[in-house]
Amino acid sequence: MKLIQLSKNKILYLLIILVIILIPQNNFSDDSLNVNNISKNLRCLICQGQSVYDSNSDFALSMKIFIQEKIEAGLTENEIYDLLIKKYGQWISYDPGYSKTTFLLWFIPLLFFLFGGAIIYFKIYNSKKNFKK
């Protein structure tokens, strides 16, 4: 009996080692700067429910050419967003960004998460304590 127990443990160790060995190296194939990726995160001002990527309006088509030109000029993704936000306002970017006016937007959901975790923790902890008495 003990022997089987031991071998089971061994198999478990073996598995853990296997998982570690098999863990792939961390190299995300770097997303090359791409008009499609950038235009997905920009809002089309003509057809206001769509992104520049989705839209076929004149504005969106010109915007795609504009982004391509900026990529060729050597701007980074964030520089392109900043440039456009400067011209058209924060509204054009689907990423609301971190600022004084948006910190609550990011913070409220995270607060809820912490709050929920705390409730569950105390629920389990308290029920245990009650029954130990």
């Binding site: 504005f59 088509l61 010109s62 050419i65 504009f66 011209k87 058209y88």
Partner: peptide
């Protein structure tokens, strides 16, 4: 011709 200058100007239509 391709509308990019209007974007430089900050226009959209």
């Amino acid at each position: 011709a391709n509308g990019t200058t209007s974007i430089i100007l900050g226009a959209y239509g």
